[in-house]
Design a protein around this nucleic acid. Sequence first.
DNA 1: AGGATGACCAGGACGC
DNA 2: TGCGTCCTGGTCATCC
Length: 250
Amino acid sequence: MPELPEVETIRRQLREKIVGKKLDGPPAGEAGKKIVDVRRRAKILIIDFSDGSSLIFHLKLTGQLIFNGESSKHTRHIFKFDDGSRLVFNDIRKFGWWKYVKSSKDIEKTFGPEALEVDLKTFKEVLKKSPNAKIKPLLMDQKVIAGIGNIYSDEILFTAKVQPVRSIKTLKPEEIGAIWSNIGRILKLAIKNRGTSERDYIDALGKKGDYLKYLKVYRKEGQKCPRCSGVIKRIKIGGRSAHFCPKCQR
DNA sequence: AGGATGACCAGGACGC
DNA sequence: TGCGTCCTGGTCATCC
């Protein structure tokens, strides 16, 4: 499921492939528009045109954007470019969406600071606004920090040795520091490995990401903790599953 | 008011 | 084979 590292991987690959090209449509109304940039905000992918308008995508759980991909029964849309190349949007569960907007400004400002750009001071400030909230749901709240989802929130909290149910006000400064530094470290390592192909995710070139082998706790319920003698536990927090080691995460 | 909970979307996986 | 249940992220409604 595409979180920041997966969307960022697609962004970088697509940028190389489509900047400078013109959209041939569909949608026909947008035909002829020249692509000037491919950006990302939170988990949203943004294709900018020279007139200031944009195509924006949210891949949700199972969306795929594949450059020159083949169409399948899960293909929702195919964007064609003036040189004959194309971009295939697949989505098995149809949770994802795309739309054409005159301006992407309104969408972009609905999110909190980017997870890879937030400094420690700002991170502490945004956490402090919700002293009673649990750390995991807060890390996944896009209005608080943008880009982190279920996989990486579990991995970040494991590496920081903090249990997902801890409320903000109980966190020591060094624990907040550990969470913050691991946000950067883990997301960057995941980007380097072109994301996690746990289920349906593939990158814009149709290849799987390699971060799966680095996962320590996500979807590893009942397995031995890679750090101590504990056993990975799965609990529900806010309707989502959280994986952690009850022994070495405090 | 803010935090918690549940519904919703769709389809695949899995147990029986 | 088929049926029920679970699972998934983000959003929204509702409740306390």
